[in-house]
């Protein structure tokens, strides 16, 4: 592999990496809080709200992410009457699809985190005079984060790789540029190069998450 060739493909692929990273950041930023909200709704005392949240999780987790992306990007605009108002920029539509999907997974992870907290914690807080919200904020959430963090980390790493599904809805990202180069130059090198970039991203992410987990060790 000549240096010139390397130079030629690196620019578009880094351009694609930028799209990948943007999607990743936007999705994490919105799906974590949304997931937490869905967890709370699924535990709501109002049965209808709880059913709605649980139904949402069931549908999202029970269907492929790719199908959801296709529906949002290409399906919604086909709905008679309102379809024309549902045409979104492709990247925006993809973001929404990813956020809705990952929120459902995060909701399940948080639910598990809440279940892991002993009821004695609630009792101790109550006896000390903390109300429901004060207990939740000061006692329950920090412990939930610790329990949920490894699973959240795992899901976060998966998200990095899932961004390649943008390829299917024709948003040019890292994998798209790699594929273009492979088709054009008939060489396997861009694939390896793309793989290397994914590895770098997940490596950095793993380091950050490990650090976070250590901070939540409480020992």
């Amino acid at each position: 592999m000549s240096f010139d060739y390397f130079n030629m493909i690196i620019r578009p692929m880094l351009e694609g990496t930028k799209v990948t990273l943007w999607l990743f950041l936007i999705v994490i930023l919105f799906s974590l809080p949304l997931g937490f909200l869905i967890t709370l709704l699924a535990r709501s005392r109002f049965k209808i709200v709880a059913w709605f949240a649980q139904g949402y999780i069931f549908v999202i987790r029970g269907t492929p992410l790719l199908l959801q992306l296709l529906v949002i990007c290409f399906g919604l605009p086909m709905i008679p009457g309102i379809g024309e108002y549902l045409v979104l920029p492709r990247f925006t539509a993809a973001c929404i699809g990813f956020i809705l999907n990952y929120a459902a997974y995060f909701a399940e992870i948080f639910r598990g985190g809440l279940l892991a907290i002993d009821k004695g914690q609630y009792e101790a807080a109550q006896v000390l005079g903390l109300n429901r919200w004060q207990t939740f904020r000061n006692i329950i959430i920090p412990q939930m984060i610790r329990v949920a963090l490894p699973a959240v980390s795992n899901e976060t790493i998966t998200l990095v790789k899932d961004t390649s599904l943008l390829y299917a809805v024709a948003v040019p990202e890292l994998l798209h540029f790699a594929q273009t180069a492979v088709n054009r130059d008939f060489t396997i090198v861009p694939y390896f190069f793309a793989g290397f970039i994914y590895l770098v991203i997940t490596f950095v992410l793993t380091m950050i998450l490990k650090r976070l987990e250590r901070r939540y060790q409480f020992e």
């Binding site: 002993d118 004695g120 914690q121 009792e123 101790a124 006896v127 005079g129 109300n131 006692i139 920090p142 412990q143 610790r146 939540y216 409480f218």
Partner: peptide, 19 residues
């Protein structure tokens, strides 16, 4: 709440906040 706030309670399992 006001009445129970005058009572302190100690549990068999301690129930300290681990974090």
């Amino acid at each position: 709440k006001k009445i129970t706030s005058k009572m302190g309670m100690v549990f068999q399992q301690f129930n300290l906040f681990p974090h």
